[in-house]
Computed example of a mutant assay.
Amino acid sequence: ELYTAKGIEGRNYFRIKLLELFYHIKQLRIEDQYEATYYAKEQIEIIKRIRQQLIENLDKKISIEELLRKEPMSKVTFQAIFKQIYGDTPYAHIKKYKMNLAAVYLQETDQSITQIAGELGYSNISKFARAFQEVFGMLPKDYRKAKK
């Protein structure tokens, strides 16, 4: 923005942008200040491929170990790279993905909560409700009522 504004915008515009920049620098967390580790393209592709397999099989319980058998990567390496890319552990990421998908279903469909839970791999409705509440702070039935 600053480069394209040069010669077009006045001095006050750049003062505001500098204040904005200082604000964002102040908001940086300590862990964000460390240099990120860079991984090989092949490693990133493995992570993305396994994540996609997990997403395509939300209704099944597939272990990371099972998916990694075909890949030249250890579980520890997988988890470290996954967390750096997606900001969460694989299971936490998939859980949040499932709950966000459940929220969409609750808002946009008339499927029962039991049907939604089943589609997302939960055979126990109370475990589904607990997981949903951990992510959204309310039960699925209350979420549906609030969003309708």
Rank of each mutant, 00 (worst) to 15 (best):
L21D: 02
Q79A: 05
D142W: 09
Q115T: 14
Q53H: 12
N12W: 11
L139I: 09
P72M: 08
L106F: 06
A80Y: 01
K141Q: 12
Q33R: 15
S74H: 05
A80C: 05
G7C: 07
L68V: 07
L54G: 07
Y122E: 02
Y39S: 05
K96Q: 06
I125W: 09
I64A: 01
Y122I: 05
L68E: 00
N124D: 14
K17G: 00
K96W: 01
E119P: 06
E20N: 14
I25V: 15
Q115F: 11
K70H: 09
P140E: 01
Y3V: 11
T77D: 02
I30L: 12
S74Q: 06
E71S: 02
T77N: 08
A146E: 09
I125C: 02
E35M: 05
M99W: 05
L28N: 00
F22M: 13
E134C: 05
E134F: 07
A80R: 15
K26I: 10
G121Y: 08
K83L: 08
Q111L: 15
V76L: 08
A36N: 06
E56S: 13
L21V: 07
K127W: 06
Y23E: 04
Q115A: 14
Y91K: 13
P90C: 10
V76G: 05
E45D: 12
K48W: 00
Q107H: 10
S123L: 12
S74T: 15
K83N: 12
Y23F: 14
L139N: 12
A117Q: 02
F22L: 15
T37Q: 11
E56R: 14
Y143Q: 01
I44M: 04
E1D: 10
E42T: 14
K145F: 10
R144V: 07
R144C: 07
A92N: 13
T37G: 00
K60I: 07
L19W: 07
K75C: 05
Y143K: 08
A92D: 13
Q111F: 15
L120Y: 02
K6H: 05
Q133W: 06
Q53T: 10
K48Q: 05
M138E: 11
L2I: 10
I94A: 03
A80M: 05
F14D: 01
